[in-house]
Amino acid sequence: MLAQQLVNALSLGCVYALFALGFTLVFGVLGIINLSHGAVFMVGAYAALEAVTALDLPLAAALVLAFVASGVLGLLIDLLVLAPLRRRNAPHLIPMIATIGCAIALNSAAQGLFGADNLRFPDGLVPSDALSLGDITVTPVEIGIVVASFVIMALMLIVLRRSQVGRALRAIAESPKAAALLGINVEGLFRATSFIAAGLGGAAGVMIGLYSNAVYPLMGQPMLHKGIAVIILGGMGDIRGALIGGLFLGFAEVFAVAYVGSTMRDAVAFGLLFLILLVRPQGLFGKVAERKA
């Protein structure tokens, strides 16, 4: 029983981490909390669903299409909404409000196009036979989510720490003006970050749509709330923190359901999160920001 709960907690925690990885990348580079990320996540799920039902594409091709479609959408949001606000030096609250408007528009458009009912990926798209190891049962989707979470985190850390692009992104995160003076194409990297982060969000939408067996217009809203909690717990803008925070929330929820009760799931999970932030308000991997008078 305990071993199965650990596996369930790992897969659920990686679900949250998969969503939060792109979310935290945007904050780490652009310095904003993009509240349209949940809607972009939903668009990726619908793009893959249409690819496998209308175009009869395999799941791998549908994932690529979802990444590209979501990435283009994230790029458009940056070009049409966030970039003009950056040029005007808008306060941090303004982009958050603007992305809320984008999310509402995208959710409404999806509901108009596809309806409000839950849609599902076709049967047989992913092997349904679970892998049994003694008392532990794991589905192929759960294995895919766990592997994808760790692989994406590792690749992002390698790029950010070992590559020239990663060093440029870290410079932008510290000071966009100083980075521009050093000859770094700040706006170009902002756009590339928006594309990649949104693409990761769309791919996460496909994986989680398969995991929950449901695609619907508001599927990104609960994930957005959990994603905000995850990046705050892990440390704003820290890639490692997105994974660790997601795992913490997943383990807290699963064990709360198993040993306290399903009605106390969120109360226990967010109560523990609150206690941790009381001790370490900057998050597990975050740094304390100095405020100068």
Rank of each mutant, 00 (worst) to 15 (best):
V68N: 06
F121D: 05
L200C: 05
D135L: 08
G101L: 06
G227H: 10
H225P: 03
A168Y: 00
A109M: 15
P176H: 06
F23Q: 03
A256W: 06
R240Q: 05
S149Q: 05
A48Y: 04
L73A: 10
A178K: 12
F195V: 04
V159C: 11
P84T: 11
E174M: 14
F274Y: 05
R87Q: 15
L278H: 02
R170Y: 13
M236F: 09
I196M: 06
A293R: 14
L93I: 15
F150D: 10
L65Y: 02
L106I: 15
M42P: 06
H37K: 01
G71T: 10
L169G: 06
A48N: 12
L57W: 15
L79W: 04
R170F: 04
L182R: 08
G71I: 06
G205M: 06
Q164W: 11
V26Y: 08
G245E: 05
H92T: 02
R120N: 09
L82A: 15
V81A: 14
E253H: 01
N118Q: 11
P222H: 11
L218F: 05
A204C: 05
D129E: 13
N185L: 01
G235S: 13
L25S: 00
G241N: 13
L55N: 12
G209D: 01
S212F: 13
A90H: 13
A293C: 04
F274M: 10
A17R: 00
